[in-house]
């Protein structure tokens, strides 16, 4: 089933992130993807995430596509100007990649090529609109295209952000610009999620709520303290005292999904290199 079709069903949607390798060895990534075959509805392939240079999302999406898996190509505004972005959108379409998740992208100063030129020629709202413009058979220069693409466009939102009203205004702007689905930043906190769901319940798009696999208490502490992600102390305590922190993290992820399941349209799992454990998480979901 294509992701567009999945979005039209009533099923509980599960997507997960895969990280391209730093280098050309695709074996570990493809093995992980194989383990997830039939278990998830979309494979997000990140675009140099955290501004760390890696193999490109487009190439991996194309390989997944050929293997009968449904890729969601992540596309950041960070590194390419409008010519390159439009061109890559057409390239994706030519390779049969329809699903594109559009995001601003982490700033180069947070990555491993800190001296890189910072581009951001378009912002995510403008890039969504650009993709929709290409669908109409013209480009940003107003020139006619010989063959036009068709996309299923997604965007991101942070339900835990400090200024929820501002985030909601962004959601509306992104929907207006062409977003059909949203994948969110990790959510650990029930009350904030409920508020977000309540405020977005009438919007004509699907929200796949971010679920993060915490592999130990150190990463949880880092996310809480350095990234300001609201992780309840209870989880950190459980991870710190567990005989196997990873098993505890898997349990926590499964609990989060089980609790969300009646309320949300789907989840987006971020396992940060531990994608082979996603089936275990899903097996534990009630």
């Amino acid at each position: 089933m294509t992701f567009t079709e999945t979005l039209q069903t009533k099923k509980f949607i599960v997507t997960a992130e895969l990280f391209p390798p730093k280098g050309t060895n695709l074996k570990p990534l493809l093995e992980k993807a194989e383990l997830l075959r039939g278990r998830i509805d979309g494979f997000n392939v990140t675009d140099n995430q955290r501004a760390v240079m890696r193999l490109g999302s487009l190439a991996i999406c194309s390989i997944l596509q050929k293997q009968g898996l449904e890729p969601i190509m992540q596309m950041t505004c960070r590194d390419r100007n409008r010519i390159a972005l439009e061109s890559d959108l057409l390239s994706a379409a030519a390779l049969g990649i329809e699903n594109i998740l559009i995001l601003s992208g982490d700033h180069p100063s947070q990555g491993d090529h800190k001296e890189a030129k910072v581009v951001y020629d378009l912002d995510p709202v403008q890039l969504l609109k650009t993709a929709r413009t290409l669908e109409t058979g013209v480009d940003l220069a107003g020139k006619k295209l010989d063959g036009s693409p068709k996309f299923c466009l997604g965007a991101v939102v942070n339900p835990m952000a400090e200024q929820l009203d501002l985030q909601l205004a962004m959601v509306e702007k992104k929907i207006e610009a062409g977003a059909q689905f949203f994948q969110t930043q990790p959510v650990f906190e029930k009350k904030l999620l409920e508020l977000f769901l309540c405020k977005t319940k009438d919007l004509p798009v699907k929200f796949l709520i971010g679920v993060f696999l915490l592999k130990n208490s150190q990463i949880a502490m880092f996310m809480k303290e350095k990234l300001g992600i609201n992780i309840p102390d209870e989880y950190i305590k459980r991870l710190a005292t567990a005989a196997s922190p990873l098993d505890e993290g898997i349990k926590i992820a499964a609990e989060l999904i089980s609790a969300m399941k009646p309320q949300v349209q789907g989840v987006h799992i971020m396992a940060l290199g531990l994608e082979e454990h996603i089936p275990e998480i899903l097996n534990k979901v009630k």
Binding site: H107, S109, V118, Y120, P124, V156, Q163, A169, M170, K173
Partner: peptide, 10 residues
């Protein structure tokens, strides 16, 4: 820092 003209990154 990202020159976003249509709103914040979150």
């Amino acid at each position: 820092a990202k020159s976003l003209v249509n709103g914040p990154c979150g």
